[in-house]
Design a protein around this nucleic acid. Structure first.
Lengths: 239, 239
DNA sequence: GAGTGGTCTAGACCACTAG
DNA sequence: TAGTGGTCTAGACCACTCC
């Protein structure tokens, strides 16, 4: 484990336990460097980590301070690391099940080519899944994935986790996503499978998910019951 | 302007113009350092900037590569810098107007105290605004702000931009936000002011906005017409 | 084993804040 | 003006990838 990460952990611990109180300055970088038997550059790197997490902020010429909302931020971080779509947010506290409504291979349409950065000749999986939380329908998800990027998908994998398969079997890493979030009226499928009334809105999330090398591997549209969960977005400016 | 930022700009330019092609490795850090007459550490810092933007990724022992979706990412970035709530997303291409429905000062309730990290004795502004894009109602926003954090709010400021006032007059900086996004059925106000039909869903965004020092200065709930705009969330993993 | 990125150092100078 | 963070250097060693 890198030294600057260990130091960041120690400082984070001191913040959440109140050794470094909220709204007050930390010891300056030179003294922290002395204490941790390291160079100032390394200490600075640790503080940058904590700044990205929203725990501290630095003011040139003045000092590095604990942010007033530091304690709240430290709670959020665990959730963030695990965040993949919305389904995962609930993984801890509930049982999740999947029902496969459709699993096909076909050629992509124009929009899918554009989103997935592929051409018309490259086949894609066409998957529709219904997800349950504690036996109640929660979301319906339409996923399109390029076969050549994620080969070997089977129904068995779909009932478990695609992300686990990509990480474990294929050795690829999730690298980010762009999501569009909007509200919509329920359509036929929503009413049938999510058991929506005609006046029940749905929350729609359109996303393109990328591997670390920027190759898109999933373009999906998921539609959620409006009364089951929401989307949390945390945003910290670094400048 | 710091050298590492200039170098990042030059490399970004080379990526978007195709000098460094997508999916290929950049020159290694030592050679980039030579070219830019600098040290390897400085080059690395430039590459880290570009990695955060989603343009490149580095693989220890192998090289630094242009991400396949780099060109799409470079388009998104401009939008992101300007992102403050949802209203701003539209600022460029349309005329925005505000109508003040309510502007009061009162004591906060328990939830507001918790969100804004204040106690019951500290008064808050209680503001309700209706926003129009090109003369059509677009969102209705209920904002609560602590008076002692943002003093001197007037109706005139509200019709313009609170953020401009905070930055310009008070010299404070916006430092981040936590948002919860969900879909909901329209309530009385939505139907009256947003001109929603009873079956029209609304997109609700609950947010706490912070200054750079972590002091919450706004707790707001905005409700949007489902057919006018959505929320874009970009997420790049750095690990 | 050669090449590449990741980390770390010790010291320097600059830019900014605050009294 | 003193103190603090921001940047930069030149060199070193380590960890990892890939041939």
């Amino acid at each position: 484990m890198a030294k600057y990460i260990k130091i960041a952990e120690e400082i984070r611990e001191r913040i959440v336990t109140g050794v470094y109180p909220v709204d007050k300055a930390l010891p300056d970088q030179i003294n922290l460097a002395k204490e941790f038997q390291t160079s100032r550059v390394t200490v600075k790197k640790s503080l940058e980590l904590l700044a990205v997490e929203g725990l501290v902020y630095s003011k040139q010429g003045s000092g590095t301070y604990v942010r007033k909302n530091a304690l709240q931020m430290s709670k959020l971080d665990n959730q963030l690391d695990e965040y993949v779509g919305v389904a995962h947010q609930l993984a801890d506290r509930s049982s999740i099940a999947s029902q496969i409504l459709k699993f096909d291979v076909r050629f992509p349409n124009e929009l899918e080519c554009e989103k997935l950065l592929i051409d018309k000749t490259q086949p894609v999986y066409d998957i529709v899944r219904l997800r349950f939380v504690d036996d109640e329908p929660f979301l319906i998800e339409h996923t399109v994935m390029p076969v050549h990027v994620i080969p070997g998908i089977s129904e068995e994998i779909l009932t478990k986790s695609i992300y686990e398969y990509i990480k474990g079997e294929l050795g690829l890493k999730f690298g980010g996503a762009n999501r569009h979030i909007r509200a919509d009226k329920p359509n036929e499928l929503d009413r049938m499978y999510l058991e929506c009334e005609i006046a029940d809105p749905v929350l729609e999330i359109d996303q393109v998910v990328y591997l670390t090398n920027g190759v898109p591997f999933e373009y999906s549209q998921s539609r959620h019951r409006y009364d089951k969960g929401d989307v949390l977005v945390v945003n910290i400016k670094s400048v």
